[in-house]
Amino acid sequence: MFTGLIRTIILYLLIIAGIRLMGKRQVGELEPSELVLSLIIADLAAVPMQDFGIPLLTGIVPILTLLSLTMILSVLTMKSTRFRTLMCGRPSVIIRKGKIDQGEMRRNRLTVDELLEELRAQGYAGPAGIEYAILETNGQLSILPWEREKPPTQSQLGLEAEETGLPLVLISDGKLLTRNLTARGYDGVWLQKQLAKHGLKDPGQVFLMTVDEAGGVYLAPRSGQEEGRRRA
């Protein structure tokens, strides 16, 4: 039992390290070569986990070999455009100037229902308002609407907006991130004042609190805190 536990932990950590080497993309955004690698690694790790008669190196060596091969292929795809096209393919323009390219749909085995589903998922009722729709190599559909269909920006309307910058998390699930508080130039006194504005006493009552570069604060109390304040 102990041997099986150790083998499982080793293989699990090895797979996690391999996935981290592949980058931070989600499974749905993996290139075909990366998806195949993930499936093969999972299969190679499953056998040594279940069969204790198989040496652990039987699973580790192929996994390390595949990870090394992946790193080599990654370097080659960065250096060579032709090799990148060979490995990852090319984006396909499904809608061009408002017209659906039926040939591209057939080549990519994309049905009308799937196309309309993707359009609806991105807030478009149909292809009428779309200038370009591009099927990327990771299977995602990128949509570029006509200029007349885009919402106007504040600069186009002649308005000036204050740049708030990136919000920084100060409290996460009741835990105060002191480093972030200091990075924003605030201290405990300022924090207590912000909590008091929301009827709270300590960071443990906060689910999420952020502050942006302009000083804008967002605070969400933990479940039960709002109800407790109403009863009080």
Rank of each mutant, 00 (worst) to 15 (best):
G98N: 05
T65M: 12
I130V: 14
P32A: 03
I171D: 02
G215C: 07
Q122S: 10
E104L: 09
F207D: 02
M49S: 08
S172N: 13
D101G: 02
A125G: 09
I60C: 05
K175T: 13
M209N: 05
R96T: 08
M78E: 10
A125D: 12
G185P: 03
N108S: 14
V189A: 12
E131Y: 07
K193M: 08
L64G: 03
Y132A: 03
L200W: 00
D187N: 15
L200V: 04
D101C: 13
E147N: 09
N180W: 07
S142A: 09
L11Q: 01
L116Q: 14
V112D: 15
Y218K: 08
Y218H: 11
A220I: 10
G129M: 12
L141G: 03
R222F: 08
I60Q: 03
Q192R: 10
D173Q: 14
S155D: 14
A46R: 07
G23I: 02
T85M: 11
P55H: 15
A183V: 06
G188Q: 15
P91C: 06
C88V: 07
G174M: 08
L208C: 01
A121M: 13
I54N: 05
R96H: 12
G126I: 03
N108E: 15
F2K: 09
E213C: 06
V47Y: 15
Y12C: 08
V169I: 05
Q225V: 14
G28H: 11
